[in-house]
Amino acid sequence: MTTPSAASRVQAIEVFEKIRSSISQVMRGQDAATRQLLAALAAGGHVLLEDFPGTGKTTLAKALAKSLGADFRRLQFTPDLLPSDILGVSIFNQRDQSFHFHEGPVFTNILLADEINRASPRTQSALLEAMGEGQVSVEGVRRNLSALFFIIATQNPVEFRGTYPLPEAQMDRFMMQLSLGYVSPEEEVAILSGQNSTHPLDLLKPVAGLEEVEVLRQATASVRISEEMKRYIVDVVGATRGYRGVQMGASPRASLALMKTAQATAFFEGLDFVGPDQVRAMAMPVLGHRLVMDPQARFSGETARGVVAEILKKVRVPV
């Protein structure tokens, strides 16, 4: 592995800072969520935003897209949405007597899959290949997506009427699940006054291009991680398997995601190595959505996030 020069590290840090400050102009009081979102971006994963309506999920996705100056599509998931509505479709052209492929919204850089749990499982699964391999196969032809392909999906945790919960395989393909939560009263007041005249989203200008995101990703991958920290990650992830109340634990893909996001977090903090703090910071968003709880445990009020918190306390932290 080649270590990037100090100059490119500095450049990558600047990229991160520019994107972060750009988003924070719109998303007030959501610095932690912004960092986690950017960690997923730098680690090359996808994000599932789960929160109540009106907390700014869509705004966050749009702010990121606008700050990057990347191609951005938004797709509203509904029960009657079909896979071809996502991937694209071949249409017969009368004039030259041949089929022409019309690319679907998935051929973009940043895709906002709004209310993803409203679509049927068939349609949800159309995203599996795109998320996992960065390619889609339509009508037997494989088509590559662009190098930067980042899905931000949102779902509403309270409303279950007319929804299809995401299958486990799909959940596992999201690198992390974030929730924004309600901001403090002061921040909320600031939001009100900020949007008095114009929406700050309209004022956003692109601060970084696709190449700069690539620099960020390379710098993240070069953050070093010791055997001991890898072991700690594996211990934490491994502890979820067979844990009391957990029907299905986290996969090795989860270990990989935890390592990559911890690397990104360490990089954002100016470190060139991963420590336990970075791993712990990322354990909740990376692992929380992957655990399948026992129905009985679920009824007795145990949650996957609670289990992750318990495990973080139980697995011995390297000091």
Binding site: I225, S226, E228, M229, F273, V274, G275, P276, V319
Partner: peptide, 9 residues
Amino acid sequence: HYRCRFHPR
């Protein structure tokens, strides 16, 4: 210390 302990080198 953090560096001493967790940096691979």
